[in-house]
């Protein structure tokens, strides 16, 4: 057992434990923190496989953005977790049946996995991660890449359609008017006599 194997087993063990922690933690904030731990370890697994760029992306995107967003949501929304758990016993039997069926099926699949002849990690056409991904993304996968772009565009339009509201009584900044404002329009020099005040 080399160093690689030791690292693999340590990291995967922590990943699995962290994933269990996400589900089992009583405090939702702890659950999100466990999730972040799981993300970090998944990134570690990717580094072991030689996909260091994906590992960094995972950390930047999932830990940096997604998990922090989760944390915000969990902290800002007043979700009553005690009440959420109340139906737990009621749904438990159905959930257990589903879980057991899935477990059995997955065990069957792991048996079938012995027949896999393809290598688990694809061969890189380029030694450098970023270059390899860029090369694939803009040649063979250009169509998929563009399709993803359109999906993101739809998500953006959707978010705007469903949430943007124009309130009629809110003063909005008009940059053109601000910039186009001249001294003559807005200032007047008045000489005020002592004791008489300014007339409108």
């Amino acid at each position: 057992m080399g160093l690689y194997d030791i690292a693999f087993y340590i990291i995967s063990a922590i990943t699995v434990l962290a994933a269990v922690g996400v589900v089992a933690a009583r405090n939702p904030v702890h659950a999100v923190l466990f999730l972040i731990l799981a993300f970090f370890n998944a990134a570690g697994l990717m580094v072991l496989m030689g996909a260091e760029f994906l590992a960094m992306l995972l950390v930047v995107v999932y830990v940096g953005a997604v998990a922090v967003l989760f944390l915000f949501v969990v902290m800002m929304l007043d979700v009553d977790f005690v009440r959420l758990r109340q139906g737990f016993a009621q749904y438990l039997p159905a959930g257990l049946v589903g879980a057991i069926v899935l477990l059995v099926e997955m065990l069957v699949v792991t048996q079938a996995a012995k027949d896999i002849r393809q290598p688990m990690v694809a061969e890189l056409r380029h030694p450098e991660n970023v270059r390899a991904i860029g090369y694939e993304l803009y040649t063979d996968y250009a169509f998929y890449f563009q399709a993803c772009g359109i999906i993101l565009l739809i998500a953006m339009i959707g978010a705007i359609v469903l949430t943007l509201r124009h309130h009629p009584n809110v003063r909005r900044q008009n940059i053109a008017r601000q910039v186009g404002r001249r001294r003559e329009d807005s200032m007047e020099i008045v000489s005020v006599k002592t004791g008489s005040g300014v007339e409108e």
Partner: peptide, 23 residues
């Protein structure tokens, strides 16, 4: 399979928004 998934997501995402259109 990739274009299968992307096509489905593209139409579904637009349809989710349209379902909630009368917000």
């Amino acid at each position: 399979l990739i274009s299968l998934y992307l096509g489905i997501e593209m139409q579904s995402l637009a349809l989710y928004v349209l379902a909630a259109f009368s917000r």
